[in-house]
Design a binder for these strands. Structure first.
Lengths: 202, 202
DNA sequence: ACCTGAACACCGTTCAAGT
DNA sequence: ACCTGAACACCGTTCAAGT
């Protein structure tokens, strides 16, 4: 079926974007990554447009809200965390949880600006970001917790939600630079061990 | 140099403010507390002025920046935490640290809006807030850690900075509502016990 | 079909005029 | 000496005109 190249055929669905459109998107994303890394949350869409060398209308067309741009910029970082979690799950180590948490901390630390930008857009209208990836991560981390429980390296009541809770705490510490997040990890991990949960403070 | 009564004498220093000035300040603070509690960080000085029933110029005169207002609004909360820490120190209990952390969580939880407002002003130009109170808190918490070490209820390498690190993590969890902060406490406290620090994850 | 940036709308801050 | 709020400045978003 020979169609005009721009308007996609009814069957295919995903029509290939025009070359300049794709290039603009790529430029915007590249500029956004740089700016987020440099200035974190204090970046506007016009800033990104200027840095990318495109009109601001174009920026708004590609990413209607700054949140969309942040999400796109953070996508592969999130995917990286997911990949690491899966690798740990497949590796079948006895005690993958500390490793996972450390990896999260390192990734967030590697680009604090982006971390701040991501955080700044929590609760912004229209931010249920990365739905599928999030679900996949949940599953992968679930496997880690399961493994650990079976090997007796963590307390039996530990859940996936707990790991996210800790990851969130580490994330906040990294972001605000309010302290050495590795120390937080050192203080926290021992509390995840078996037979520590029983005699909580009265 | 004989001066008019309004211009403070060289000796006394603290001159008493005019009645309406004091009243305006009180109104602004009351309005600010309400608004912070309701809407957290999305509050502007003109908002507060309107709610207080004073001109916005007056608001800017009393509190040149929103940060000053937040600081003033959060002052007694901070003082309350300090008082609690001192009470625990005087109480001489064997294991005051979990109690202290729980108290911090409860106070922050009681007014999340204010917590968010306080956090939103970290790193804003001119925010080395509550310098003296902060130093006093440091000292009080130091006593708690000291007591605990002596009683053997915490690991010997635990420091005041560690407690602030944990308090910050709890604070972030409370603020963002990203999870049950009490659970975070339960997961964390066991890791503070003695003989847990030695065999950290490789 | 997409791009551009001037025009618009909005919100925080200042300061001239009033008490 | 302090208060008020209209005027100003700034910044994010839209959309009419251009390619």
């Amino acid at each position: 079926m020979s169609t005009r190249s721009t308007e996609g055929g009814a069957a295919g669905g995903e029509r290939r974007p025009r070359a300049d459109v794709a290039r603009n998107r790529a430029r915007l994303l590249a500029a956004a990554r740089e700016l987020f890394a440099e200035r974190g949350e204090e970046v506007s869409l016009p800033d990104v447009a200027r840095a990318a060398g495109v009109g601001m209308g174009t920026a708004y067309r590609h990413f209607p809200t700054l949140g969309d741009l942040v999400e796109a910029a953070a996508e592969d970082r999130f995917a990286g965390i997911l990949a690491h979690a899966r690798a740990l799950a497949d590796g079948g180590g006895r005690d993958p949880v500390p490793d996972y948490l450390r990896h999260v901390g390192e990734v967030l630390e590697a680009d604090r600006g982006l971390s701040a930008a991501v955080e700044a857009l929590r609760g912004t209208p229209g931010s249920a970001p990365l739905g599928r990836t999030r679900a996949e991560l949940e599953e992968a981390v679930g496997v880690l917790v399961e493994h650990s429980r079976r090997h007796g390296t963590v307390r039996p009541d530990l859940t996936v939600a707990d790991i996210h809770l800790l990851a969130g705490a580490i994330s906040a510490t990294v972001r605000t630079g309010s302290g050495p997040w590795r120390r937080l990890l050192d203080l926290t991990v021992p509390g995840l061990r078996p037979d520590t949960g029983g005699h909580a403070a009265s």
